[in-house]
């Protein structure tokens, strides 16, 4: 694996939009520059309203941008595409499809033969631990299982970059730490390039190779915190006594709190 291949590149990205009521221009993002290298998991944290979800929507191709440049594997982002898979915050798996039909949906859209789809679906069903639930509909699953299904669906379509928008925000605390550990395991197993948006400092520090801290509005990249812990060692039980984890978490927390107090003063 070439660690220096940038899979996702963002240069000088700005985003303004008119306020719905006053019509004034709101600066959501200001001069964002970032690079995501192959196999890297980068988390983005910042106070609410710092434009982190706006960034993800732009990268997903769901929100058009005018200033700056964003590209995946050298190809400029101009709309949604299968090279970028998204795991949404809400449960976005389709209620009218079974678990396996949801997971295979991306491949079905691409027109792959049925046998090939079911073979690869099985692989990801096993990876996220949904064996035995293949023929269940989403309403028969728990919140955590729905999100596992969403992650499997995105992985199965084999995107170059996986974009995750606060995917574990809507599940309970116990499920959340399990899902975080599972994502860590999946990142280790699949070597996927992942951009992970979150408002949780602990989550950001636990999962990230690098953590980008955003400033309050307009969203700017304030600082990058590198988390130097091998993935194999990342288990919540160990983290509470891990000096590197504590250092990174406290650093991120300090940076985010500065921004929160700035936002409150304004």
């Amino acid at each position: 694996m070439n660690a220096m291949t940038a899979k996702l590149v963002v240069e000088g990205l700005c985003h303004h939009y008119p306020d719905e009521y006053t019509g004034e221009s709101v600066h959501a993002l200001e001069d964002i520059n970032l690079e995501l290298y192959e196999g890297e998991l980068v988390s983005v944290v910042g106070p609410s309203g710092c434009g982190k979800s706006t960034l993800l929507n732009i990268l997903a191709g769901l929100l058009p941008y005018k200033v700056g440049k964003a590209s995946v594997d050298g190809k400029v982002i101009e709309g949604p595409g299968p090279d970028r898979g998204v795991v949404f915050q809400e449960h976005a798996i389709l209620p009218w499809r079974t678990v396996s039909r949801n997971i295979g949906h991306g491949l079905e859209i691409r027109g792959l033969p049925k046998e090939e789809i079911s073979r690869r679906v099985q692989e990801y069903v096993d990876l996220v631990g949904l064996s035995g639930f293949e023929d269940k509909y989403p309403h028969e699953l728990s919140g955590g299982m729905k999100q596992r299904c969403a992650v499997a669906r995105t992985l199965c379509a084999d995107p170059i970059v996986m974009l995750m928008d606060e995917p574990f925000a809507a599940v309970d605390a116990q499920t959340r730490i399990t899902l975080q550990e599972e994502l860590n395991r999946i990142a280790l197993a699949t070597k996927k390039t992942i951009l992970f948006i979150t408002h949780s400092v602990d989550e950001a520090a636990f999962l990230a190779d690098r953590c980008l801290v955003f400033s309050a509005r307009p969203g700017r990249l304030k600082q990058i915190v590198t988390v130097d812990i091998p993935r194999e060692k990342r288990i919540w039980e160990n983290m509470n006594a891990d000096a590197e984890f504590i250092r990174c978490r406290d650093e991120i927390l300090r940076l985010v709190r500065e921004e929160v107090s700035v936002a409150i003063e304004e």
Partner: peptide
């Protein structure tokens, strides 16, 4: 739901 299908190409 629509966005999820669009982002899968």
């Amino acid at each position: 739901y629509e966005q999820s299908v669009l982002t899968m190409g």
